[in-house]
Computed example of a mutant assay.
Amino acid sequence: MVLVATVALVLGGLTSWGQLLLPAETASLANSAGGWTIPTAILVVVLARGYPEAAVQGAVAFVALTLGYAVVSGWRDLPFDPSTWAVVGLVAGPVVGTAAHALRRRGRRLALGTAVLAGILVGEGVYGLTVVAETTSPVWWSIELAVGALVLAFGALRVRPWGLALVAATGTVLVAAAFWSAFVLLPILVFH
């Protein structure tokens, strides 16, 4: 847990700097859910020993990312209240953590974990290319879509029985649609 929290805290701080230093083509990486989902999933896949631990590590990672971002943004004289995104992290982190841990399995768990992670990345990629397309470069969103497709392909090729590949693909579409809808509605519900 300490390693997950430490790495996530540092990555969250780097996100703040990334918004300033990354080239315009990839700057959206530093302002995306996928930019935090990917390292969280990697940490959990490597470190979690079971589903409860994966869920807690997912939450810890997302909250630490948010706090790291808030601290470094404060140092940069860009005050940021981490409350809303910490709550989002407490809800989304366990989902991402358990989905990431499922990538180490086979069968239905692998299909569902694949659907969640691929769906988040595909959903945000589509969101970026449609909703915020006028104000951001398509490069990061296209990369995120490609990574989501790779996650889906990885899971679909490993899942047994083969029919569960359809579950992973259908689930990816459903999660992507839910993610896109949530990101469209979140600013309306929380920030207005």
Results as ranks from 00 to 15, higher is better:
P23N: 13
W85T: 09
I188Q: 12
A61N: 04
G13N: 10
T135Q: 13
L103D: 12
G163E: 12
A54N: 04
R49S: 14
G97R: 02
L14R: 09
A165E: 08
I120D: 03
W36M: 13
V10I: 11
G89H: 01
P138W: 12
W85I: 05
F80I: 04
R105V: 00
P23C: 08
V167R: 04
P82A: 10
L67Y: 10
A168V: 03
P187H: 04
S16Q: 14
W180L: 15
W162C: 01
L65C: 07
D81K: 02
V96F: 09
G35L: 12
A92F: 02
E124N: 04
A165P: 08
L3D: 11
G113H: 03
V87K: 03
Q19I: 09
G12T: 07
V139D: 06
S83N: 06
S137E: 08
A54V: 09
I188S: 04
V71N: 05
F154S: 03
T37D: 02
A156W: 14
Y127N: 03
A115E: 06
G119F: 01
R76W: 04
L21N: 08
G34V: 03
T66I: 01
H101F: 15
G125M: 03
A153M: 12
L65G: 09
L9K: 12
D81P: 05
T98N: 00
W162A: 14
R104T: 15
L145H: 06
V173E: 03
V126Q: 05
R158S: 11
S28D: 14
G58E: 09
G119R: 01
V175C: 04
V173K: 01
V88G: 01
L174W: 00
L3K: 12
S142H: 07
I120C: 07
P94W: 13
P79C: 03
V190R: 11
P23Q: 11
T170G: 05
G74E: 13
A115S: 14
V132A: 12
T6G: 15
Q57I: 06
G12K: 10
E134P: 04
R109V: 05
